[in-house]
């Protein structure tokens, strides 16, 4: 048999349903002779069971082992990340609506209280009275003419910072929140890759 090269690239993340069998074509992109790829693609690497819970890491080595059982002479060139994160998606119970309202009210009251505490903390009332005097030359203990626009400005500033709210965006760039969520997801992935992958840890005295 002539030695042919097959190029294999593991996908970063795969969503699947419980009980699904994971084949190599789900896990990786393959390039090479058509018939070989067809056969490799249909090989089974893993079957999702209840014990797997929500996250399974399939290591590249596992995939290579599976392929080499059938094609011991095949030259496999690997590109990219050495593992795939499989996320098992279970059906969520339908109480999220109530949760959502609770979280909404929590955030609303929390934000309101936080801003009031902040104002008290930095003596905002005195500062506003002083600004009122600086501009008009008159004393006013309750300078609402300054404070109402200030309160509206608070909301405006948050809209500006997060770039999009109410479906309208100012430009195409991702907002800081989207970047932040991406970074957080990357950190989680990194953790999961190191900790859920049994191949990564081996205790020497076990052998």
């Amino acid at each position: 048999m002539e030695v042919e090269a097959v190029y294999l690239r593991m996908r970063h993340r795969l969503l699947c349903s419980p009980g699904q069998t994971i084949r190599i074509k789900d896990l990786a992109q393959l390039v090479g002779p058509e018939d070989v790829i067809q056969e490799i693609g249909h090989m089974i690497v893993h079957k999702i069971t209840v014990q797997d819970k929500t996250i399974v890491i399939v290591d590249l080595m596992e995939v290579l082992k599976t392929i080499r059982k059938k094609f011991p002479l095949l030259d496999i060139q690997t590109v990219g990340t050495p593992q795939t994160i499989i996320e098992v998606q279970y059906k969520r119970p339908k109480i999220t609506g109530v949760y959502f309202v609770i979280v909404w009210i929590l955030l609303f009251i929390g934000a309101a209280l936080a801003i009031m505490n902040f104002h008290e903390d930095v003596s905002m009332q005195q500062v506003h009275q002083k600004i009122y005097y600086l501009v008009t030359g008159r004393r006013n203990d309750y300078p609402l003419l300054l404070q109402v626009p200030y309160s509206i400005g608070l909301g405006l500033g948050m809209v500006l910072f997060f770039n999009h709210i109410f479906k309208k965006r100012f430009n195409e760039e991702p907002s800081p929140l989207e970047v932040e969520m991406f970074n957080y997801q990357q950190d989680l992935d990194q953790y999961v890759i190191m900790n859920e992958n049994k191949e990564n840890e081996k205790k020497a005295h076990d052998d």
Binding site: V103, W104, I105, L107, F108, I109, G110, A111, A112, L113, A114, I115, M116, H119, Q147, Y150, S151, I152, L154, G155, M158, V159, F162, I165, F166, L177
Partner: peptide, 13 residues
């Protein structure tokens, strides 16, 4: 949820 924080800030203020 962001709007909750936003309105919370404005109305709290």
């Amino acid at each position: 949820l962001l709007m909750a924080i936003l309105f919370g800030k404005v109305i709290g203020s």
